[in-house]
Structure formats: C-alpha cells, structure tokens
Amino acid sequence: MVLPTTLQGNLMPAEINFLAENETVTILPRYSMKKIELIGTPIPPLRAMRREKVPLWVALILKSQDKCNIVPPKWLNLAYLKEKHEEELRKPNQFSDLPWHWQEIAKILLARAQDDLSDPSHQLRSVIQDLREIRLVKSRKGLKELNESNISLNGLSLLEINELRPFVLGVMNKLRSLHETTTTSKEVDEDMAEVSDDDY
C-alpha cells in the first residue's frame, strides 16, 4: 500500500472528526425545506421553528447560512461536564460514560456554533480540557496493566482509543508472541495426544 504504515491501521484525528460529523444533532430551523433522500441518513422535511434531528454536517451548513440554530446536545453544558469531571475524580479506576464522539462534537460546536451554546465557551473549553486530561492520566495508569490477551476500554471514546492504539497494539502483539513461545509447545503436545486418542 502507498499509505505510510502509521496510517494503515489507524485513523487520523481529522478522519475521526469527519466521522463525527455524521452524528445527529437537534436543530431549530428558521426556514422550511423539503426532505432530502440520501443513501446514509435521510434529511427529514424541515419546518421553521420545529425541532428536527439532522446530521451534524447538514446542521453546520444551515448554520453557516444562518438558516438554523443548533440545540446543543444535553451533555454539552457546564453543569453536566463538571459533574462528569467530579465522577472521574471519584472513581479512579473507571471512565465515566461520555458520548462516542464527545471531543470532536464539542470542538466543532465550540468553533462553529458558539452563540447557540448555553455557557460561555472559554469555561466549556477549560472543563473539556480538564476532562480530557484526567482521562488521559487514567488511561496511562491503566497501561501498567497491559497483558497479552485482553484490554478493557470501557467508557473511552473513539478518539481516545485511536490515540492509544499504535502503542497498545504494538506492546500487546509483542507480549503475545513472547507468550506463545511457551504455550505452543504444550498445545502441540495436547494436539498430538488427541490425535493418538482418535487412532485407538
């Protein structure tokens, strides 16, 4: 393949950002529009001042033309995020459950739809940064527990998993191949035993 090896098994943050744009958000249109049939997520008919769920990318286009307001998702406000931050502090061995694309959506909305958010953006930014950092520290700590067979990623979002992936895969693969050197010989013996049993 022509792609550099780092990109072959891993996504770039920009690609994940792109994927996140397909998440649905609620908007409050100011204009009416007929529905559009798309292969992926069809866009429902829009009527002025009636809440409707559309993919984020559509919402962003409409927003940039001043044709809608974006209703921020229920987790994107100071109270909720602060509470999640507390939760992270309270449970040192566990990640609180945040949406699969929380960082990307938060970033996009903070950049493109600041005026629709209920809280001042600099405060939101700082609490998001805090959340990210505490989760990063936790996942680092969790890496101490790496083994050759499994890893628990409960509660982590796609972007966070993606950041860890090259490291975790590399180490786990190596651990596995080291581990296999001692187990395969036994397994072969067992296989042989089974075969001879069948022969009788």
């Binding site: 490291f167 080291l178 050197t181």
Partner: peptide, 27 residues
C-alpha cells in the same frame, strides 16, 4: 530462543521487562 527451548521463567521475566519499559516509553 524460547520457541526452541521453551524457558517459561525467562519469558516471564522478559514479559515483565517489556511491560515496565513500554510504560516508560509511553511517557
């Protein structure tokens, strides 16, 4: 070496080393 001689003790030690060192590498 270990796939020839299957030295479990050694593999355990090396796996431990890899874990500790990789943690350090990550930081």
């Amino acid at each position: 070496w270990c796939s020839m001689f299957s030295d479990e003790q050694l593999i355990d030690n090396v796996m431990n080393m890899l874990k500790e060192r990789s943690f350090e590498i990550n930081s």
